[in-house]
Simulated scan of single mutants.
Amino acid sequence: MAKVVTFGEIMLRLAPEGYLRFVQADKFTAIYGGGEANVAVSLANFGVDAAFVTKVPDNPIGQAAINSLRRFGVCTKYIARGGERLGIYFCEKGASQRPSKVVYDRKYSAISQARKEDFNWDEIFAGAEWFHFTGITPALGDNVAEIALEACKAAKRLGLTVSCDLNFRKNLWTSEKAGQVMGGLMEYVDVCIANEEDAEKVFGIKAADTDIISGKLNHEGYKDVAKQLKERFNFSKVAITLRGSISASDNKWAAMLYDGNDFYFSREYLVHIVDRVGGGDSFGAGLIYGLLNNYSSKDALEFAVAASCLKHSIEGDVNLVTVSEVKALAAGDGSGRVQR
């Protein structure tokens, strides 16, 4: 019985070794990941019973994706099988002033061809307390958006807390379509998670006096963004990650949380990046963990940011850290000294 259920797409990630460019590579490392799958793995590593729901092809590649989740203790019981293929993305890691690049090959993926009858949400949510999805999932097609809406309705009817990371992807849909679809889903969301750009790209709500290219992030502007989001959609909490990009190798990393009464800002970390993919997902998982365990708003935020800070030091999509490691960093031990 899962306490947290996540729904989305898991993909095959193919990446050149180290910092090689695509045009240099003669081999690719294969791993699996995707927004909501990454959240489920993080939570499982924290000791939470987590289930991931998706659809994968009924072939060895689909099975390999399922196995990648099972090895971390994620429940895969409700994954549907069928469809043509597993989505793929190619990831080239950036360094210094050269940005990372992602190329998607996900058209006609199994989840994009899913049908409502593939998922029995009453059965999936039995005994669960939390449901999480991202804005990537409904962007995969009108049919997937309808499934996400059906899941949200069932979750609310059954008393689950619902969280959503807006996660706007311009190569999947336009801002206009995103605003229309996501606006309908937000009616069922309790906890909204966004980054510096999502609120603007999806709902046209922009932080004043902020320039993400230069790394200038205005706290007062993000307070206003969070307040507008809460007023428009009646969220119980709004979290916004704040990334100050110094280069592809070094970022400043922090976040804020608004609970309707107070605004909380985390401590800021200077992060030297090993792999930034999944950074937002690890934040979402950390926030869910903290709120599930009745942490205060401030403590839940600090746990989430510390968890995500650590993720930036780990190769691959998923965050392979323990609760004690996160708590140690959140408490101020960021020395990186050898532990013996």
Rank of each mutant, 00 (worst) to 15 (best):
A148G: 07
S249I: 06
K156C: 03
K201P: 11
Y264W: 08
H219N: 13
E196C: 01
L242P: 09
C152D: 03
E146Q: 13
M256F: 04
P138L: 11
G260H: 13
F265S: 09
S245M: 10
L229Q: 05
W253L: 14
A155N: 08
W253Q: 05
V181R: 02
M186R: 00
A178M: 12
D262R: 14
V202S: 01
E196V: 06
I213G: 13
F168H: 06
D211K: 09
K227H: 10
K156P: 09
I212T: 15
K153M: 15
M182A: 10
L160W: 13
L149G: 10
R243T: 05
S266L: 09
D211Y: 11
S266D: 06
A151S: 13
A155H: 07
G179M: 04
Y269T: 00
W253Y: 13
I147G: 03
L217G: 06
A254S: 15
R267S: 14
M186W: 01
W173N: 07
A239G: 03
C152Q: 01
G135P: 05
A155W: 09
S163P: 07
A248R: 10
S175D: 02
A248P: 12
R169F: 02
V191D: 03
D165G: 06
E176F: 10
G159P: 07
N251T: 14
G179N: 06
K206A: 15
L257S: 07
H272S: 15
D262K: 15
I273V: 15
K201M: 07
Y188C: 00
D262I: 09
A207L: 07
D190N: 11
E268V: 15
S214D: 09
G141V: 02
M256D: 06
